[in-house]
């Protein structure tokens, strides 16, 4: 497999690395930030909503991912606020992060459609497939 660097927004990433599937917490955090900037606790609540309560991020996981995403240039700080003497830092998706999330969505959709079509043709499911 050919390995080359993609140069975008002053950052490099190996194409083969950028094509690797995102881990679920990373995918959900990027999804939570896709629509509007959010602060840490907002991201935790949104991820829980997006995943129908299945994924509840903890602070340790969240900030390990946020730190890495910032270092990779996929998200950036939008603004900071102090609410009830507590710091709130809002994060937003960058253009690079948006492209990476879109690529992951396309990959997942392609795989899901393939799985759905084959399950439908197999006749293994009583209702004929997946809604």
């Amino acid at each position: 497999m050919r390995r080359e660097l993609v140069y975008t927004d002053y950052r490099y990433m190996l194409r083969s690395m950028s094509d690797q599937p995102l881990r679920e917490p990373t995918f959900l955090i990027l999804t939570a930030l896709a629509e509007k900037p959010q602060h840490g606790y907002g991201v935790i609540e949104d991820v829980q909503r997006i995943s129908d309560g299945r994924v509840r991020l903890r602070a340790g996981t969240l900030y390990a991912v946020l730190d890495r995403l910032r270092a990779d240039g996929w998200i950036e700080v939008d603004r900071e606020e102090v609410v009830q003497s507590r710091l709130r830092r809002y994060y937003r998706l960058t253009a690079l992060g948006a492209r990476r999330l879109a690529a992951e969505v396309a990959r997942l959709r392609h795989n899901a459609e393939a799985a759905s079509a084959r399950l439908g043709r197999s006749g293994l499911l009583a209702d004929g497939g997946i809604a």
């Binding site: 840490g40 900030y63 710091l87």
Partner: peptide
Amino acid sequence: YEEEMLAVLLAG
């Protein structure tokens, strides 16, 4: 991140 994480931990 400490203050920010603390705020998230206490909020939750």
